[in-house]
């Protein structure tokens, strides 16, 4: 059911029955280390290339989610997944080995929210009993696609962010009398518009994506007549330190105060002073791994009960930037409740 301008209410309350998360060495050394299911020391994850490693991170996250749910893989109807690499190869190559009907998505770092909205929609509508939503990113694979070679000796711009190496996957199932009581469900979603306020600096993605997050959050509150205190946590994907600061400031100007319950996955995943990650983490794998590893268990244990999760993405490419285009942002919001 649609309410307001852009918000979907999932009246059949699809439940998230399990999650899986897998991350690389830098994330393993970060403050959320103990929350991830799998964390490895090797950026190659035993593979020959970074791209293959990224696929393996996603495969690992999906495998973990399916195993934890004690579900046969043939019971999974669809898989919605995306990543940052050209033609979404990490997701496509992961799906190659799974035998699940596959929808490849690109929403840059907002992909994980996008995947969850679509997976929940399919389950809510009765088109699927079980769906997987997943997203991944890899620092080394992204650097070579979007920026400079890894071994090139350049300095980190203070406003830049560090692409997370890792992946997360949620398993979304049809709600029934039993699982409804145990698992958190996806109750609403507010898909966002693409918004561009003219930022051209690829080393300042938080600022480029902030207006999209701002717009989606306000649309969500207006559509639902809710206020920020309805939620235990308002989680943004990867706005980073600067983007989060700007978002809070602008929302306050607009009349919404999220100072007490806002966290950003990119800020949480690294200790920027010790790990030298400038404004924090970014990438599809950032919000995916933090949601699956850190947020979902809190929901399941009912430590928190209402979460507004907004993953933000920057929809540029090296080609568009080379042609002088600015960076458009998009943000999708998902509500997960007990």
């Amino acid at each position: 059911m649609k309410i307001g301008k852009h918000t979907i209410v999932f009246e059949n309350t699809p439940v998230i029955i399990s999650t899986g998360s897998a991350v690389g060495p830098k994330e393993k050394g970060g403050p959320l280390s103990k929350y991830f299911d799998t964390s490895v020391e090797d950026v190659y994850f035993g593979e020959k290339t970074f791209e293959k490693a990224e696929s393996k991170f996603m495969a690992e996250a999906i495998d973990l989610a399916i195993k934890k749910a004690e579900l046969d893989i043939h019971k999974i109807d669809y898989m919605f997944a995306g990543d940052l690499l050209n033609q979404c190869i990490s997701s496509g190559y992961t799906a190659r080995n799974l035998g699940i009907s596959f929808f490849g998505l690109y929403g840059a770092c907002s992909t994980f929210a996008e995947a969850n909205i679509l997976a929940a929609s399919f389950v809510n509508a009765g088109y699927a009993y079980n769906s997987i939503a997943s997203a991944s990113s890899h620092f080394c694979a992204s650097e070579r696609q979007f920026r400079m070679p890894l071994e090139q000796g350049t300095q980190l711009t203070p406003t830049s962010q560090w692409t997370v190496t890792g992946s997360g996957a949620t398993l979304i199932a049809k709600a029934d009398e039993n699982n409804k009581k145990i698992y958190p469900h996806i109750s609403m979603a507010t898909p966002g518009k693409v918004i561009d306020l003219g930022i051209k600096d690829i080393a300042n993605m938080g600022a480029a994506m902030m207006p999209a997050a701002f717009d989606t959050i306000i649309t969500h509150f207006e559509d639902t007549n809710r206020t920020p205190d309805y939620y235990d946590l308002i989680i943004t994907g990867d706005l980073g330190i600067l983007g989060s600061k700007l978002l809070k400031e602008q929302l306050k100007n607009y009349g919404y105060n999220i100072d007490n319950n806002h966290i950003d996955c990119g800020v949480k995943i690294f200790d920027t002073n010790a790990q030298d990650t400038a404004m924090g983490g970014s990438g599809c794998g950032c919000s995916a791994s933090v949601f699956c590893g850190y947020i979902y268990p809190m929901l399941k244990e009912k430590k928190i009960n209402r979460v507004l999760f907004i993953a933000t993405g920057a929809l540029m490419s090296p080609v568009s930037l080379g042609q002088g285009e600015s960076i458009p942002g998009v943000a999708h919001a998902v509500v997960i409740e007990n």
Binding site: K193, I195, D196, L197, G198, I199, N204, A207, P211, F214, D215, I218, L242, L246, Q250, N253, Y254, S326
Partner: peptide, 17 residues
Amino acid sequence: MDYTKIGMNKKEYTEYV
């Protein structure tokens, strides 16, 4: 771009950032 509620144009936003 009048459909965003942020109340700043591109130039103002860039300066703000």
